[in-house]
């Protein structure tokens, strides 16, 4: 009876030709099939996590580059610039990366960079990064050009400002011009107003301080940069510890023991378990000895 009924129903719709289940010769009645299909669609809608670009970014953020790449490949092409940007980033993150892949990523980035939105700025920034760190043979001059171009096009954008900061690094340590260390420092100082964001200005001031030490500039000059870093704050980890001990030690070298004392005491308070503590305590002991000697001498 069941088979006969089904056969009759079968003649009423083409869909039934495909509705045989479990290899049996008995087709399901149309309503049952539709019910089942509808149910499955509902289940799929509720449970299925269609990969989208967000999932791709999540995997990239989690260093799961291969998964991100597979997920991106499974997405239907939509021709969007956001998709193209993700493709370029996945190519850059792929291991092992080849020069050819990086060139292909650059071609994508050139396309994405056409515009004046966030995605365009990101693409412009990444293109400069390719020349600065990713290509087998780095080209700092080209990277600097691209950072400048981005800052000219979108001066208010974060990625343009970050690019200016990277330009500052290249100017301090890598570009052939300006050749004189002092001119390098001044050229980079001139970038600070355009960078505008305090955190980025802080990071560049930190590197100005590093360069001032490398180029053997007077201690006072280094202290100006480091104090600017300290005013912004927000550094974490080893860098924060380095900064406070540097401020203390350089103040001492600059002949300002009172300032040094304040920084060293702050170091011991903020980083009590640091294994530099003994070094700092010895510095403080020496300052105390000098203070004591000056006090006994009766003079200032």
């Amino acid at each position: 009876m069941f088979a006969g009924g089904a056969r009759r129903a079968c003649g009423k719709g083409k869909i039934f030709q495909h509705a045989r289940v479990f290899g049996a010769s008995t087709p399901l009645p149309r309503s049952a099939f539709l019910l089942l299909a509808g149910w499955l669609w509902l289940v799929r809608t509720v449970w299925a996590h269609e990969p989208d670009l967000t999932q791709v970014w999540k995997n990239l953020a989690d260093s799961q580059n291969t998964t991100a790449q597979a997920m991106l490949a499974s997405l239907p092409p939509d021709g969007s610039r956001a998709r193209l940007l993700a493709t370029a980033v996945v190519q850059m993150a792929h291991q092992p990366v080849t020069e050819e892949m990086l060139r292909s990523a650059e071609a994508d980035l050139v396309v994405v960079a056409q515009g004046d939105d966030e995605v365009a700025a990101l693409a412009g920034y990444l293109r400069a990064r390719l020349y600065q760190v990713h290509f087998q043979k780095t080209d700092y001059t080209r990277a600097a050009e691209l950072y400048r171009e981005l800052a000219r096009r979108q001066p208010q954008n974060h990625w343009a400002r970050l690019g200016l900061m990277k330009l500052g690094l290249l100017t301090l340590f890598a570009l052939p011009e300006p050749a004189e260390p002092v001119a390098r420092l001044r050229a980079v100082e001139a970038l600070l107003p355009a960078i505008a964001e305090p955190a980025l200005q802080r990071d560049l001031n930190l590197q100005l301080g590093r360069a001032a030490v490398l180029y053997e500039r007077p201690v006072e000059e280094t202290l100006v940069y480091l104090k600017a870093v300290d005013r912004v704050g927000g550094l974490v980890g080893l860098v924060a510890e380095d900064l406070v001990s540097q401020l203390g030690e350089l103040s001492l070298r600059a002949g300002r023991p009172a300032d040094a004392k304040v920084y060293f005491q702050r170091f011991l308070r903020d980083f009590p378990t640091n294994n530099r503590s003994f070094n700092v305590e010895q510095k403080l002991a020496r300052i105390a000895e000098r203070e004591h000697a000056a006090g006994q001498g009766g003079g200032p």
């Binding site: 967000t54 970014w57 999540k58 990239l60 260093s63 980033v89 850059m92 990444l126 990064r129 990713h134």
Partner: peptide, 13 residues
């Protein structure tokens, strides 16, 4: 080199 992809991804998220 590995940082760039992660930084951009965090920015996108």
């Amino acid at each position: 080199r590995t940082q760039d992809g992660r930084t951009i991804a965090h920015a996108q998220l």
